[in-house]
Design a protein around this nucleic acid. Structure first.
Lengths: 223, 223
DNA sequence: TCAAAAACGGAGTGATTACTCATTTAGGAA
DNA sequence: TTCCTAAATGAGTAATCACTCCGTTTTTGA
């Protein structure tokens, strides 16, 4: 059997994303684990394959991690805490600071375009996190508290500011407004991957503009 | 080890949902398989546990199904074709026929309430279907063609009718309108399960009304 | 009523699993 | 060079996996 070449390169992972103090071997193991888990899911992955991909002996793996599950957690939890979470909020935060004076419509478009690129780049990682969070409560906790809640908070603050400026209706909960734009956006992303034929040849920015406009017509203060 | 009592009872499955011609044993096996897969996922489930839950010998399983994967497909594919798919479209179809004369807002509210109940009742089944579709293309195909596309079509027809009546804007694709209401609705459902504390004590119907109103303000023809 | 056929049971198969452990290797200090 | 220690190794282990085989029981049909 020939060696399989991993189809998914984790080029976006910096050394600091997994943990501060990692030996060369630990680093190789976690990177290999991420590759294998990403391709087959946790249950269908084997420690022997992780060892093979990492280029170390199987015994070495269990010198650094007590169990297979510990490998999963040691891989995904630091990535959520140090990479996915900060990556999601920092970029959003900067974007909001820099464009505070722009009209709502343009800021939202910038945000959605930025998020779309970000999600696309991280998709293999996000996919395995979302899937495995269903079976491992430890992952679900970290996902909720270090990613979901933080992104929510940043975005809610932004919407509340705009609400105070009078650019958004104040007769209903900002949460509902967030659900509306978030839902429309995610549904568009899903629709792009499930039905690529539908979105082919269309201008992505134009499509995002429609989503923003549809949201704002519902969410803006009545003139 | 004491026998485990399945925590998820598939009381909603009718005999005809899985297949027309099933022996008693086959029926027991598929029901047990569904229970076990639902709890642990496909990869982490074992044929010996399925046999135990079904109350048959492990050999009996492989008399009826060649492989473990065949059990998965024989369980989920008929359920999608005969139960999830029809259940989703029939109810929608009836509801639209009966309330053709009602204003858009009320019909949408009825639809969302109906869908919410339906999804809640089927959730354990839908969950395993959505999760395993990520790893088994055969499931993904059936899910797309026998569930997603059919629901879409029914709903698109409804929206197009209302568009022709002048109740919805005709300056943009109905698809976008569908994405908008669908996204807002699904996001609300997800938010209810992820953050139950947020929705506790609130009137569900009232919350759905807000979603509908938010959508319609964006999607209705400007007066 | 009875023989042929089909269904069933459960011990058993080799392969594979997560994980262990005695041994080897590597690298720095004396 | 010669230790010493910690890291790395890979053959090995018991358990478990999906799946088979064959004797027994049940069903079928005439």
């Amino acid at each position: 059997m020939p060696d399989q070449v991993p189809t998914f390169q984790h080029s976006w992972i910096g050394d600091q994303s997994l943990s501060g103090e990692l030996t060369d071997k630990q680093w190789k193991i976690l990177k290999a684990a991420l590759t294998v888990f990403t391709e087959k899911g946790y249950s269908a992955s084997t420690t022997s394959e992780i060892a093979r991909v990492a280029g170390v002996a199987e015994g070495t793996i269990f010198r650094h991690f007590k169990t297979k599950k510990e490998i999963l957690l040691a891989t995904l939890i630091p990535l959520m805490q140090n990479f996915i979470g900060p990556g999601a909020t920092n970029s959003l935060h900067d974007l909001l600071l820099e464009n505070d004076n722009l009209p709502m419509e343009e800021v939202l478009l910038l945000i959605l375009e930025d998020r779309q690129k970000h999600i696309a780049a991280l998709w293999p990682l996000l996919r395995i996190v979302l899937l495995e969070a269903n079976y491992h409560p430890e992952l679900k906790d970290v996902l909720l508290n270090n990613v979901v809640r933080k992104v929510q908070k940043s975005f809610l603050v932004f919407l509340e500011q705009r609400q105070r400026k009078g650019e958004l209706r104040d007769d209903l909960d900002v949460w509902k407004l967030m659900c509306s734009i978030f839902g429309g956006f995610v549904t568009y992303l899903v629709s792009c991957t499930l039905f690529p034929e539908r979105e082919q040849g269309k201008n992505n920015r134009q499509e995002l503009k429609v989503i923003v406009e549809l949201f704002l017509r519902g969410a803006q203060k009545q003139t």
